[in-house]
Design a protein around this nucleic acid. Structure first.
Length: 355
DNA sequence: AAATCGTGGAG
DNA sequence: TCTCCAAGATT
């Protein structure tokens, strides 16, 4: 069989499968580029089940790109809370303003113009352009790597520039130019529900007759990913102040790194777990707490290990009762208005239950 | 160009 | 429990 015939039937089979098996998802009932953009940003590195409720909340809260642009960045982060990779939310808000101010409020639909939006890379620009503008720009996401690596037996590692380039070129050859949007969504949906990472049902697969990995029994080892992720351990000590007026103190993370733009309790980071006496005597603690007017009680003897993709945060929440009214503090009742990492959110939720 | 950015579900 | 990894982008 000639390659052209094989690739053509590959794409047609995918689209045929898709039209019969696609899930009914809200962003599949529109080609409004603003909505498609929202869905694509939300779904970056995020499962459909996790992103779905966020999408519904975002289109309800911000029905148009103008509504999003007019909002405070903090409000966008608050709506994003719990979804992770918070730069997506900040870039989303920045790009909404860019569309309003530089593009006269008209959301772009061409691959080239979409790439200019902060937070929109090759994948997202390809997705929106194919769905909203019928452009033959092939998407390459985690699903596409897997489907192509298995079907065509591509063993190039997918997490280095060589593999990224190679898979993009292959995907671009395969795209159905008559219906690029359907093709792109088809191969992703196929990867998500049929050609799954683990235990795919290969015996009941419309593409198994031409699949390299199925024929060679290498489904489990494709795609190839060279993972040398180093997990760093960090030790966080949050100072949870409680004063005589139902107040506490929070601060914003305004440096680069994790959780930029989110709030947290005053933080003392140490190089290892620290004893209460040592903590109380430290300069940092004394700059946060008035030396003569507090009583310390640890909330958790055992550190809470909060696991990020490449950091493990060994966290203790040190509850400190203050005997007078704090300055520059917020009411506990206002706490829920601030965007916070899920680690902080969970602590406050359990803390409330225990009081 | 490799490291860095969250969170949660599945097996 | 532990590992993988999910509609990636940025630097």
């Amino acid at each position: 069989m000639h390659t052209h015939t094989k690739t053509s039937s590959f794409s047609k089979t995918l689209i045929f499968w898709y039209l019969q098996n696609k899930r009914d998802l809200p962003w599949r009932n529109t080609t409004n580029p603003y909505f498609i953009w929202l869905s694509e940003i939300i779904l970056q590195q995020t499962r459909v089940n996790q992103g779905l409720e966020y999408y519904l909340r975002f289109i309800e809260t911000f029905p148009s790109v103008k509504d999003l642009a007019d909002a405070d960045e903090e409000a966008v982060l608050k709506l994003w809370q719990g979804l992770g990779y918070y730069s997506r939310a900040r870039n989303l808000h920045f790009s909404a303003n860019y569309v309003m101010n530089e593009l006269n409020g008209e959301f772009p639909t061409t691959y080239k113009e979409l790439l200019k939006l902060r937070g929109v890379g090759d994948y997202t620009a390809s997705a929106i352009a194919s769905i909203c503008n019928n452009e033959s720009t092939a998407v390459v996401d985690g699903n596409v790597y897997r489907v192509l690596a298995r079907y065509f037996g591509v063993k190039t590692p997918i997490n280095f520039s060589k593999g990224i380039k190679e898979f993009k070129e292959l995907a671009q050859k395969l795209i159905d130019k008559d219906e690029p949007g359907n093709y792109n969504q088809a191969i992703m949906e196929f990867g998500a529900t049929q050609c799954k990472p683990q235990n795919p049902d290969c015996n009941n697969c419309p593409l198994n007759s031409g699949c390299f990995a199925f024929a060679n029994n290498t489904v489990d080892s494709l795609p190839v990913k060279e993972n040398k992720l180093k997990i760093k351990k960090r030790y966080f000590n949050y100072i949870v102040l409680i004063d005589t007026h139902n107040q506490t103190k929070i601060s914003i993370r305004n440096k680069k790194g994790i959780w930029q733009g989110l709030y947290e309790f005053p933080l003392i980071e140490t190089s290892s777990e620290i004893h209460p006496e040592e903590l109380v005597q430290s300069e940092e603690f004394q700059s946060i707490v008035d030396q003569h007017n507090f009583k310390l009680s640890t909330f958790n003897q055992q550190s809470i290990v909060h696991k990020l993709s490449h950091q493990h945060l060994y966290t203790k929440f040190w509850v400190v009762n203050c005997k007078e009214k704090l300055n520059n503090a917020i009411l506990w009742d206002d706490f829920e208005n601030y965007p916070v990492p899920i680690l902080i959110h969970n602590f406050v939720a359990s803390f409330k239950d225990n009081v």
